[in-house]
């Protein structure tokens, strides 16, 4: 009798009592924890550790404190490239924030119109570029903008803007903006979809109430819809930030590791790659590579923290 009660109680206990760490929980968690720790967290920590060391020709490593960071930020051989990459990266991000989010918001507004015919067809097609590899997109636009093929020029001429065309990817002044816009073109689907979902989430009654209250289309947008999707715009911004400050593929595909012309399209991702693997005569340096990676990590963490504590808290999420 007492046997039966004891075994009957046990399963409930193993679920609810917090003080024990049951075997089956360990079994369920172990594979994920092991792979994640070994191939994600450990490398990140090891990279940070490595950024405090220098290596010599023999391959031996010495602890060097903050010397690498000092070199990165002040040594003329490094700092020029670093600040240049950071500045370019900020431009890259700014173009995304302004153009990508504005177009994404606009498209989402159009797609969320009530009873829009063909809405799902538009959605599917507009999201298509986002699904393709950045590398492939890079090559596609390289061909599109290639003056040799001249297709972009031809199309621009057709709408009377032919004289406006230039070798945008090849000029120092326009290459970075052009590449940023190519990236915007590819990823505009993400803000579009997220904002679209947020807009759908706003109940129709609320918009009807605003109309009865006398709000015109612009006021409904400005006073009702926009405030209600601000949290989504926040999420979009931080996703864009992280993706932009760790971008690499597009510039590598279009411009190679040297991010030309004259480093005008160099961003932190390409700078990291060159530092780590070397280029032309410069040999790669794992420790300096780790230093650049750590700097990028700090920048991304700063962004995430600003978002979590400065932005997200202020953006009240609304349940309807």
């Amino acid at each position: 009798m007492s046997d039966i009660t004891a075994s009957g109680v046990q399963p409930a206990e193993s679920v609810s009592v917090r003080s024990r760490f049951p075997v089956h929980v360990a079994v369920f968690l172990a594979p994920a924890l092991a792979i994640y720790t070994l191939f994600s967290i450990y490398p990140l920590i090891d990279t940070i550790r490595l950024s405090f060391y220098t290596g010599d020709e023999s391959g031996a490593r010495h602890f060097a404190g903050l010397a690498n960071f000092y070199t990165l930020l002040t040594d003329p051989a490094w700092s020029g490239h670093f600040w240049n990459a950071l500045r370019n990266n900020l431009v890259f991000f700014a173009v995304h924030m302004v153009v990508q989010n504005a177009i994404g918001l606009g498209l989402a507004m159009l797609l969320s119109l009530p009873r829009l015919t063909g809405g799902s067809v538009y959605r599917t097609l507009l999201f298509l570029p986002t699904m393709l590899s950045v590398v492939i997109i890079g090559f596609i636009w390289q061909l599109m903008l290639n003056p040799l093929w001249g297709i972009a020029e031809k199309i621009l001429s057709a709408v009377g803007l032919g004289s406006f065309f230039g070798p945008w990817l090849g000029q120092e002044t326009t290459a970075l903006i052009t590449i940023s816009l190519i990236s915007v073109w590819q990823f505009v689907g993400i803000p579009m979809m997220l904002i679209y979902a947020a807009l759908l989430n706003i109940p129709d009654d609320l918009l009807d109430a605003a109309i009865v209250d006398g709000a015109g289309p612009f006021s409904v947008f400005w006073f009702v819809r926009l405030p209600l999707i601000l949290p989504t715009l926040g999420v979009v911004s931080i996703l864009t930030f992280v993706a932009n400050f760790n971008a690499f593929d597009l510039i590598y595909a279009i411009k190679g590791a040297l991010a030309g012309p004259n480093f005008s399209t160099d961003i932190l991702g390409t700078f990291f790659y060159r530092t780590f693997f070397g280029y032309q005569l410069q040999v790669g340096s794992p420790t300096m590579g780790a230093t650049v990676a750590t700097a990028m990590l700090i920048i991304i963490l700063l962004g995430v923290l600003i978002y979590l504590f400065g932005v997200q808290r202020r953006l009240q999420r609304h349940t309807f």
Partner: peptide, 17 residues
């Protein structure tokens, strides 16, 4: 807005923000 009407919705439709 010009019909001199006011409406109370089933869901109340209060502006949450």
């Amino acid at each position: 807005a010009e019909r001199k009407i006011a409406m109370v919705f089933q869901s109340y439709a209060l502006y949450p923000h």
